[in-house]
């Protein structure tokens, strides 16, 4: 179900100046960071469309970086996110890039890397602080960042029919969590699966345990720590 929340309209609570270019940008940053898992050493932002034209005045750059630094949309520290990143020794760079006609004008590609991994995420800010994640690495997906509905698990695994049924079983065995829906995209020999869950939030140790116990799985990430609005 993808109903818009009343609080997508009466919200988000945020620091200005723009819900799409500041708050939405911050949320895309948060998303990318949650998927990356761990501290990136270098982050590159490719700004598309309106993001590329007017990002400076809207503090889109500070907000994107703030999101990657796990700041909330209402965090006054967003103003100083450059300084915070410098202190944490995280390199960052902003580049303009046309990502393609099919993307909303407020779109960014975020590439995060450290010595262990590299991840690319494309996200759009579609208005009023609502975002959509449209690409993770090579997988075209559509994750709508609806208010308070981030209880999903993102899993990359070998293209193998047995992985997800098995994982589903394990998740359902956790108390108070049920897999509600699964979306999948395959690229070459890998599949990206998104397990939408219901019930309580899954805890980090549980995610790590799942990841360890599964074969043919590259990673499992939980989005349940993401900002609820």
């Amino acid at each position: 179900m993808n109903e818009i929340s009343i609080f997508d309209i009466a919200g988000p609570i945020m620091v200005g100046p723009s819900s799409s270019h500041t708050a939405g940008a911050c949320k895309i940053g948060q998303f990318a960071r949650a998927l990356f898992h761990g501290t990136p050493r270098k982050v590159t932002f490719y700004l598309h469309g309106s993001f590329a034209e007017v990002y400076k005045g809207h503090a889109t750059d500070r907000a994107l970086l703030g999101g990657v630094l796990k700041m909330r949309t209402s965090d006054p520290l967003i103003k100083d996110s450059f300084k915070v990143a410098d202190k944490k020794k995280i390199e960052y760079e902003f580049k303009k890039k046309f990502l393609g006609e099919r993307y909303h004008p407020n779109t960014v590609e975020i590439v995060l890397e450290n010595s262990r991994r590299k991840l690319s995420v494309i996200g759009s800010s579609v208005g009023g602080g609502v975002i959509e994640i449209l690409k993770i690495d090579n997988f075209n997906i559509r994750l709508r960042g609806r208010a308070g509905k981030y209880l999903s698990l993102v899993v990359r695994h070998d293209k193998n029919k047995m992985v997800i049924p098995k994982l589903k079983e394990k998740v359902n065995a956790l108390k108070g969590i049920r897999v509600h829906d699964v979306e999948q995209r395959t690229y070459k020999d890998k599949t990206l699966s998104i397990l939408h869950t219901k019930g309580r939030r899954i805890k980090l140790p549980e995610v790590i345990e799942l990841e360890k116990s599964m074969q043919h799985v590259d990673f499992i990430r939980s989005l349940s720590k993401l900002e609820k609005q």
Partner: peptide, 18 residues
């Protein structure tokens, strides 16, 4: 004006029209 100062506001429905 608070929004332009990067103060805390509620986007209702967006920050520009808040």
């Amino acid at each position: 004006e608070q929004n332009a100062r990067m103060g805390r506001i509620v986007a209702f429905p967006t920050a520009g029209g808040a």
